[in-house]
């Protein structure tokens, strides 16, 4: 129980332990802890920044989407207009084509009618000449009376 040399040894050992703890063990642990703290702080800041930029990107994409939607609407409108124009144009073309075809048909008919009338007249003339020549036989020279006949045919 009495105080003895153990005390001195213990004191000395204590100081040695404190020295080693102070110089060897403590600094790397503290350094690692501080570094980790800094790293975590950096990580948190980066995460914050990331989430902020994500927000920004979302906003931006929303904006772009809006613009695109408007543009698409415009394009669709223009396309519709154009389509209607094309259809109109086509209709007009078809209309005029129809008119042209009908007109040409009319002209054809007219021409054929005229032709038929002409040939009919000619035939009537010829018939008349033939009939007359039969009646008159030889008395009438075909050549001499051709002018008269033609005049007649034109009059029919």
């Amino acid at each position: 129980m009495d105080l003895n040399a153990t005390l001195l040894v213990q004191s000395f050992t204590f100081l040695v332990f404190v020295f080693f703890m102070w110089r060897l063990a403590w600094p790397p642990i503290i350094k690692a802890m501080q570094d980790r703290q800094a790293k975590i702080a950096d990580g948190l800041a980066a995460a914050e920044k990331g989430s902020k930029s994500l927000n920004d990107a979302a906003l931006k994409s929303e904006e772009a989407l809006k613009v695109a939607r408007v543009q698409a609407q415009e394009i669709i409108g223009a396309a519709n207009k154009q389509a209607a124009q094309i259809v109109d144009q086509a209709r007009q073309d078809a209309e005029s084509e129809k008119a042209r075809i009908v007109a040409s048909g009319h002209a054809e008919v007219e021409r054929e009618v005229t032709q038929a009338k002409d040939s009919l007249r000619k035939q009537v003339g010829e018939l008349a000449v033939a009939g007359a020549s039969r009646i008159l036989k030889r008395e009438i020279d075909t050549k001499a009376h051709a002018d008269v006949l033609n005049e007649l045919a034109a009059q029919v």
Binding site: Q10, T13, F20, L24, A25, W26, P27, P28, K31, A32
Partner: peptide
């Protein structure tokens, strides 16, 4: 003194080892 030194040295040893391996 023996037990004291053994215990103290043990702790110091673990501290130094942790310090060696400590990273972020």
């Amino acid at each position: 003194i023996a037990f004291a030194v053994i215990l103290g040295a043990l702790f110091l040893f673990f501290m130094i080892r942790v310090g060696r391996k400590a990273n972020t």
